[in-house]
Design a protein around this nucleic acid. Structure first.
Lengths: 352, 352
DNA sequence: GCATTTAATGTACACGCGTACATTATGTCA
DNA sequence: TGACATAATGTACGCGTGTACATTAAATGC
């Protein structure tokens, strides 16, 4: 992994506020005041300066501004580096990113993309110490020791950050999450309403608070309907399609023997993989068993039969996460937010 | 759309190289030299400085560095702002982004994400004039007047930039593209090999050079095999699933009447939409007609029957685009690159 | 009309780093 | 040992902005 030359971009001869000041016949400070709209200003002066700026084509140097203000104007977005590995729904990230971008732009901030190192080195705090970012949003966070340490350091140093789709129980980090507990509950209630009585649950790894929430919702729904929770009916995949596919053999037996009549999967990818595996064994979702996924991904609408699933407002989550960091003071109620999700009933759990 | 307060992040009292210099008993310049590894240095001094830096916990201020170097160290990535509108494959973007990120990190650059304004205002050059970015990569570019103007300005001002997946014929902009001409040709040749003789082509809008390339490849394949090109067999969607779906009615008639026995679609999304529409009319891909898509998206493997398609090395394209800008001098052969694509034969065009 | 406030602008400097140039230490060769 | 090249370090300043403080112009009150 060779490093490459760093500095082959030419240094342009920019025009600074000095030129503007000279042309407008005022001091540099006045130019600065006009452009930043600060202090009392004579209207005539303002116009003269603005016109002069337009004439010479002045554009403030963002680097100098950042330096002088001791603020980068950047909000860091930390995300997992997973090329070729479709562990996460890419839909998920692009929606969240768009949401963040929307708020950031409104508040005059830029987005600095930071890919998390694969090897667990996550010195998020350094990004703040170097002043590269003023705040940050952490996507795809997991409850693992390195992550906990990194976040604890951020918190301890008072750096503003916000988690999306992950919470840490004992730590009151700012976070934006969707109500997966209720989403899962509703999904399972829906299956029960459809007449299913032994519902398997294909969950993801528990280092995602997401997964734990879903498990809880699953249990709650069962209890609510007086159905016993059976831990043998809970399977764990890794949110990939493959991990769903690989569980097909096992589940096919359960379905055939009548031990299982429905599956609730913690995301669409696993649901789809499982459906494909079961189909290869002659079992069709919506016929021999019912299925509900999670995320309302593109795939859920593409696949046949169309997958019932739970829609998550990713875009809004991104918007809200950024707003938490950028929009004024953080109110108490805004530390942690839970956005509603929506059950989408389609063919895999529809009426027979 | 209310603006929000800008500056509620506290100003930290950082420690600068001054403290390091004092502790190490050297001048600030020497500290700087050690950290930048420039000029002749006594080994003992270097160690003393590094140790002092470690003791006081010194971290260079990136904003000051950028200002002094007149370089932001950022590479801008411009992409379309399309929340909720799945016009582009999100897979496409996340792969390219990962690729860019990989190279950028290797070269010590950060990624500044810039969403293109929906309303056509695209002052890319301003990003350079303000020094926010040192180079940029343009994704999802289209051949429309505002875009041409924006790119021409970049070129005229000598700002380094690179297009991905789009070329402008008369302008020799740096670009990384996949060989869609050949990809399309091979897809169509494959269909012909499978016995198809009247192959419809569902293309995208021609303001993407992509689309034009594919059309050319389509034509070439036909000519090569002595099949007449019939312009009535070319349809135009907008790369969305919906646009494919909506063409189903029309194509169902053509297929039933024997005017069409295969469809080549310019991307998977349209192919999938079309397949779904045709299925609703009793026509199955791989049976009554053959189908080949483009992109090798997740959906192509999810859908049933599995969609034959053309795989595009998005990740590598991102890597290469960044390398063109960051890796040393741009060689002549590197102005425009064409990466190979690969036909993936699956069920929609397999043997009967 | 003068004292006093307030508006408007100018002056001066800090921000933290990179680096050109000056200076001093350390050789090297005759 | 002296002349000289080179290594190692120090000094001084620029980068372009924001802004505290000083200064001057205008407005207000009596």
């Amino acid at each position: 992994m060779e490093k490459c030359h760093q500095s082959h971009f030419r240094r342009q001869s920019v025009i600074s506020r000095k030129e503007v000041a000279k042309l407008a016949g005022v001091s540099e400070a006045t130019v600065s005041r006009v452009l930043n709209n600060v202090g009392p200003l004579k209207e005539e002066t303002r116009e003269r300066v603005l016109q002069a700026a337009a004439v010479v084509g002045y554009v403030p140097n963002a680097l100098a501004q950042q330096f002088a203000r001791r603020k980068s104007g950047n909000i860091g977005v930390i995300l997992p580096f997973v090329p070729k590995v479709h562990l996460f729904s890419t839909y998920y990230f692009s929606e969240i990113l768009s949401g963040i971008g929307e708020t950031a732009k409104r508040c005059g901030y830029d987005l600095l993309l930071i890919f998390r190192e694969p090897d667990g080195a996550r010195d998020y705090a350094k990004l703040f110490r170097t002043q590269k970012i003023d705040a940050c949003i952490v996507l795809g966070s997991q409850d693992v020791p390195e992550e906990r340490a990194a976040l604890a350091e951020l918190k301890a140093s008072g750096y503003p950050f916000c988690l999306v789709n992950q919470r840490f129980e004992e730590a009151d980090y700012a976070a934006v999450d969707a109500d997966h507990r209720n989403g899962s509950r509703e999904a399972v209630l829906h299956l029960i309403d459809r007449g299913c009585r032994s519902i398997a649950f294909l969950n993801g790894p528990l280092q995602y608070s997401n997964s734990a929430d879903r498990l809880e919702g699953y249990k709650n729904a069962l209890v609510e309907k007086g159905i016993a929770y059976v831990s043998q009916l809970v399977y764990v995949g890794n949110y990939s399609r493959k991990s769903g596919y690989e569980l097909a053999e096992q589940l096919a037996l359960q379905i055939r023997s009548g031990v299982v009549d429905a599956v609730f999967a913690a995301n669409d990818r696993m649901a789809i993989g499982l459906m494909q595996g079961l189909r290869e064994r002659g079992l069709e979702a919506g016929k021999q068993y019912a299925m509900v996924g999670y995320d309302d991904s593109d795939g859920s609408r593409i696949i046949s039969p169309r997958l019932s699933t739970v829609a998550v407002p990713f875009y809004e989550m991104g918007k809200l996460a950024a707003a938490k960091l950028l929009d004024g003071e953080q109110r108490a109620d805004a530390v942690s937010s839970l956005l509603p999700v929506q059950l989408m009933v389609r063919e895999t759990s529809g009426h027979e």
